[in-house]
Design a protein around this nucleic acid. Structure first.
Lengths: 142, 142
DNA sequence: TTGACGTTTGATAATTATTATTGTTTAATA
DNA sequence: TATTAAACAATAATAATTATCAAACGTCAA
């Protein structure tokens, strides 16, 4: 862990009012070294090599802490369950990072050029998560 | 159910090689009348008012059928588990609708103007799912 | 140092969402 | 309507996540 990283974690913990424990340090550090889009289970497996006694629940709790602190993100807010899209018109979504509610917004209404942070209805935009859905090369073959 | 809808469902079932059962009809029809982003549980509750004996598993199976037929979509692909974003650079994702693999693509690399369907690496773009992540008015108050 | 107190952890039970299994019923078609 | 494969309901199983709780830990005042 670099000095900058150590400081970052200390700041996060201070702001959140929690202690800088060994488990937290290792989980933070592990995430910093992992690439891609690891699941809690994958993080757990990695952390276990350094702290064999670590609990999966601890990994979950600390991942949540780090995500809530804004230092890491969820790849896509998944809404706990499958959701069916019933709006046929081309549109995007306003997703609340707190309550995860989904509101439709017409495609025209969302100019990608705009950097305005307050959108229609008072929604406060923090970031755009853009998924291109389609088929990867492997799946095209099948 | 309108005649057009009845035809649509029949076509879907023919293509998929499945029977047009009463349950399927009611599930399809129910989805058509629902707005927003219903979960399987919500669809199940609705369908139950017309077919009290219906099983939740049947609702799941038919929602999957309709999604695979392309007549409805998932709101966002959920990957079965939480995924942590470890890439700090601004980027988007190439998500395979079949295997749900996620590949990063740099923000610059994804010109929104482009309508090219084949992207870097041979990924076949089918549609863009754009989420604006932020806070809804209610959650801003809290 | 010691002891008291609040926090964190690990172990595990509980919950939630989804999928698989199985015996029974039903739709399609002759 | 009789046949037969498909679809169904009921429910068990699984996977992911969260909740519970007792024990261990860190901190700080004496």
């Amino acid at each position: 862990m670099t000095v900058a990283e150590a400081n970052e974690l200390r700041t996060i913990c201070e702001r959140a009012g929690v202690a800088v424990t060994h488990q937290r340090q290792v989980i933070y550090e592990t995430l910093r070294t992992m690439h891609g889009h690891p699941s809690p289970e994958e993080v757990y497996t990695r952390v276990k090599t350094r702290i064999p006694s670590v609990s999966l629940a601890t990994v979950y709790k600390n991942i949540h802490l780090l995500i809530e602190s804004g230092i890491f993100h969820e790849v896509s807010l998944h809404h706990g369950s499958l959701r069916v899209e019933t709006n046929e018109k081309p549109h995007h979504h306003l997703v609340c990072t707190a309550c995860k509610s989904i509101t439709d917004i017409a495609a025209e209404e969302l100019g990608f050029v705009s950097k305005s942070r307050k959108l229609r209805g008072g929604f406060l935009a923090q970031r755009f998560a853009v998924d291109v859905l389609g088929l990867c090369p492997d799946c095209q073959k099948k």
